[in-house]
Every structure is written in C-alpha cells, then in structure tokens.
Amino acid sequence: MQVMTYVAPILIGVLYALVMSLIREPDRRRRFNAIMVAGAGAAYLSGGGFGGWEFLFAAAVTYCAYRGLESWTFIGIAWLLHTGWDLLHHYKGNPIIPFAHDSSLGCAICDPVIALWCLRGGPSLISLVRRRTARAQ
C-alpha cells in the first residue's frame, strides 16, 4: 500500500474540521455536523453488502445524529460507528465507492479524525491556530 492511502484520509479529516470551523457557533456547527453524519450513515444503503443490516446501521447512526443535534458526543459516536462499518465493508470487499477498492479503508481512516474533533466539542480550528500564533508572537 502507498503512504498516501493512509495520509490522504487523515488530511481530509483535518480539512473537514477546518472547513466546518467556518460555520459559526453556538449550535449551527453542531447541528450541521449532525446532519452530515446522518447522511454518512446512509452511504451504504444503495449498494451495501450486508442486506437488512444496512438499514439497522442507518437507523443507529440516525439516532445518534438526532441526539447529536444537542450533543457533540453523539456526533462523535456516530462517526466511530461509521468507522467500524467502513472496516467491515473494506474487509468484505464491498467499498463505499464501487470503483475505488480502498475507499472504505480511506473512510475508516478519515472518520476517526472527524470523530475526535467532534468528541472535543467541534472547536474552531481557525480560532485555535490564531490563538497559538498570537501567543507565539
């Protein structure tokens, strides 16, 4: 496997958190992310390889996303659930993007990066960088 198979998904997760940092808080960023993870939870429905289990998984993530409207923790949990589902799909050979063999693996690497950001409360990475830059000067 190439290094970029592992590095690119991490960078995508960081980029996701950075772009989401442009959405102002309070509430808007969290609620938008709850909607995003709900969509991710349904990503395998059209071609998933686990039959009816795909619906059960989508329901579990939807529940977490609903709770995530008021809690960053539930959004983080939903991304971690998606990570596990990505791994199952990768090992089964049924990737999220049918023509991209390692797409579920990439998603399984990216999702925990997003989950960690969510479990930290979805802080603005832009503000964090600005504060550190100001302290360094």
Results as ranks from 00 to 15, higher is better:
P95S: 03
G84T: 04
S103C: 03
G49E: 03
Q137E: 15
P9L: 13
L80P: 01
L18N: 00
A108E: 09
L80M: 09
Y91H: 06
R31F: 00
G121T: 04
A42F: 10
I35L: 13
E70L: 11
F55S: 05
A78P: 10
R29M: 01
S124Q: 01
V37E: 02
G39K: 01
I109Y: 11
A78I: 05
S46G: 13
A65C: 05
L81D: 15
D27E: 13
H101E: 13
G47D: 07
F50A: 00
D111I: 02
L45W: 00
Y6T: 06
D111T: 12
V14E: 11
L22Q: 12
R67N: 05
E25D: 14
S71I: 01
F74W: 15
I109Q: 03
R29Y: 07
W53G: 00
M4L: 06
A136W: 15
A59S: 13
G48E: 01
E25L: 10
G41W: 02
I75E: 07
A60S: 12
A59L: 12
H82L: 14
V7P: 10
R29K: 12
L56S: 09
G52Q: 08
C118E: 03
Q2H: 15
R31V: 04
G121L: 02
G93I: 10
I97D: 08
I12K: 11
I10Y: 13
D111H: 14
L56G: 13
W117R: 01
Y6F: 14
E25H: 11
A108K: 10
I12C: 11
M4R: 09
V19F: 14
L11A: 15
L15A: 15
D86H: 13
G121E: 03
G68L: 00
A58M: 04
F57E: 00
T133N: 10
R131F: 08
Y91E: 01
R31G: 04
P112W: 08
V37H: 01
I97Y: 02
V14W: 11
P95F: 03
G39N: 07
A17I: 00
M1Q: 11
I97G: 10
A42P: 04
S124N: 12
G41R: 06
G76S: 02
A115D: 07
P95Q: 01
L69T: 07
G49S: 08
I96D: 13
F57S: 00
S21W: 00
P9Q: 12
P112G: 06
L69M: 11
D27M: 11
A58I: 01
M4G: 01
L128Y: 11
S21H: 03
G48N: 07
H101K: 12
A115P: 07
T83I: 03
C64E: 09
T62S: 13
A42E: 04
D111R: 06
D86Q: 04
I114N: 03
L22V: 04
L128C: 08
L80R: 04
G122W: 01
P98H: 11
Y91G: 02
P26M: 06
V7W: 11
A65W: 10
I77E: 08
A43P: 03
D111F: 09
G121V: 00
M4C: 04
S71W: 08
L87C: 04
T73Y: 05
V3T: 15
M1P: 15
M20T: 07
